[in-house]
């Protein structure tokens, strides 16, 4: 399930939306649905009195958690989240992430989490998939990617974020902007913005290379290093 500020229908109460979901997938009775709804709200630490509230009566963080509660109605194996924290302040972001991680460990579901905020996922995710212009640029274990990014783009993404541990390192952006998908450059799609660009980068499409269990789409890693 993806989740964002506006993923709740503004004209229905939380209870009604949960009931909709239950009815679509099971033949639970009204009372059972009500009980289950209260249960999942409690799981994400929302007071069940909010069951009959409309989304606009909830705070941003509560809405996000209500969304996650809705995803938990059926003890899923997989939860998909699309920038669930983008509209929240930093403190609320952290607490939401901690809660997601806790629930994940307790209930054992897998998570796909989409974000553009590298620092947010560093402590929570097992693996990272870096996408660039529709392709996989790099896929590694989170720790490994943070310690030693293989793709110049991953490197750039890391540079663009303040590190919590590091001293006042200078923040570097990545110059330029992503390519127009209708008008892609030949060869490596990142080449026009890459600080380490070489002539052979633009010669041909770059395949994914395997480096110590990680995958990376960069000619520099051709030899598996």
């Amino acid at each position: 399930m993806q989740s964002a500020m506006n993923a709740l229908n503004p004209v229905l109460t939380v209870a009604e939306q949960m009931r909709d979901a239950c009815r679509a997938h099971s033949n639970m009775s009204r009372a059972e649905i009500e009980a289950r709804s209260r249960e999942v709200l409690r799981l994400v630490s929302i007071d069940p009195v909010h069951l009959h509230s409309y989304p606009h009566q909830l705070s941003g963080g509560m809405r996000q958690r209500a969304m996650i509660a809705m995803a938990l109605l059926f003890t899923p194996d997989l939860v998909i989240m699309d920038e669930p924290t983008s509209a929240l302040d930093v403190v609320a972001q952290r607490s939401l992430m901690v809660q997601i991680k806790e629930l994940q460990e307790r209930l054992g579901f897998a998570v796909i989490f989409v974000t553009h905020d590298m620092s947010l996922v560093s402590h929570f995710s097992d693996r990272l998939l870096v996408m660039y212009a529709g392709q996989v640029a790099e896929m590694s274990k989170t720790r490994e990617l943070f310690d030693r990014p293989l793709h110049p783009y991953s490197h750039g993404l890391l540079e663009a974020f303040p590190s919590i541990r590091g001293p006042n390192a200078r923040l570097a952006g990545i110059p330029g902007s992503p390519p127009d998908l209708a008008n892609l450059p030949t060869g490596c799609r990142f080449a026009p913005r890459c600080p380490l660009v070489e002539p052979r980068c633009t010669a041909a499409e770059v395949p994914l290379y395997s480096v110590n269990g990680s995958l990376v789409r960069c000619v520099l890693r051709e030899n598996g290093r």
């Binding site: 989740s3 506006n6 229905l12 679509a24």
Partner: peptide, 24 residues
């Protein structure tokens, strides 16, 4: 997003059309 969400919840298209898209 709530229309996408309604579809993701697996609601019947009829229900999504009326209560989620139509009513808004």
């Amino acid at each position: 997003d709530y229309v996408r969400m309604a579809r993701a919840k697996g609601l019947s298209p009829w229900r999504v059309m009326w209560t989620y898209a139509g009513r808004n």
